[in-house]
Amino acid sequence: MAVYFHEEDLPEGVLAAGPVAVDTETMGLVTTRDRLCVLQISDGKGDEHLVRFGVGSAYDAPNLKAVLADPARLKLYHFARFDLAAIEYYLGVVAAPVFCTKIASKLVRTYTDRHGLKNLIEELLGESISKQQQSSDWGAAELSEAQREYAASDVRHLHRLREALVPRLEREGRMALAQACFDFLPARARLDVAGWADKDIFSHE
């Protein structure tokens, strides 16, 4: 198992076929203001790849974009809504189809309100990760080893989490509902960027 660090694009051919786990690190939580700094991606075979974008980046990443935009390759996220918005806004591609472990958790782990990635990994996989670097400066000229390990850990477990969550969705009869939510996520992300982040357009008000 290794963590690989790349500047501005993913090398061609480093990912195996099949689903990929994806996550992003930005300068903050406002997509249009806080630039995309790092994108993490893993094919679930044991390695994680971190792609860092510098200040003033043109986000010309043809190899990475080809993987993200591939409609035949499932993308696994935890809180896909945020990552999809950042990826489309900065890289110009819709990184779908989607499986979101946070939504899956909310649909089947109704016995708890703890749906963070750390909570899921602890309960479903019996492992622990550190979230200490979550709010660190991802735009720094050099990323620390702790930042790189944190970023890698955010995609390291998503394949196994999906394997644990799908049987629960099927058991509770909520797989079709989950899929409908996943299919809607790119549109939900566009609503966020367009100004409806805090408004429920489906409500009567």
Rank of each mutant, 00 (worst) to 15 (best):
A2L: 06
V3Q: 14
D9P: 13
A17K: 13
G18L: 03
P19N: 07
A21C: 10
E25A: 11
M27W: 07
M27C: 14
R35E: 03
C37Y: 09
L39K: 02
D43A: 09
D43Q: 06
G44R: 11
R52V: 13
G54H: 12
G56I: 01
Y59D: 03
D60C: 10
P62H: 03
P62W: 03
L64D: 10
R73P: 09
Y77M: 09
H78F: 00
H78I: 11
R81L: 12
Y89Q: 04
P97K: 03
F99V: 10
C100W: 00
C100S: 08
T101K: 06
S105I: 11
R109Q: 14
T110D: 03
T110Y: 08
R114E: 15
L117N: 03
I121E: 12
L124N: 01
L125I: 03
S128D: 13
Q133M: 14
Q133P: 01
Q134S: 04
D137A: 04
G139D: 12
A141C: 01
E142P: 06
L143H: 09
E145Y: 02
A146S: 13
Q147F: 04
E149P: 12
Y150E: 04
H157A: 14
H157Y: 15
H159G: 12
H159C: 01
R160E: 07
L161K: 05
E170T: 02
E170W: 05
R171E: 15
G173K: 01
R174N: 01
A180T: 10
A187V: 02
A189D: 06
R190W: 12
A197W: 14
D198T: 06
K199E: 09
S203H: 07
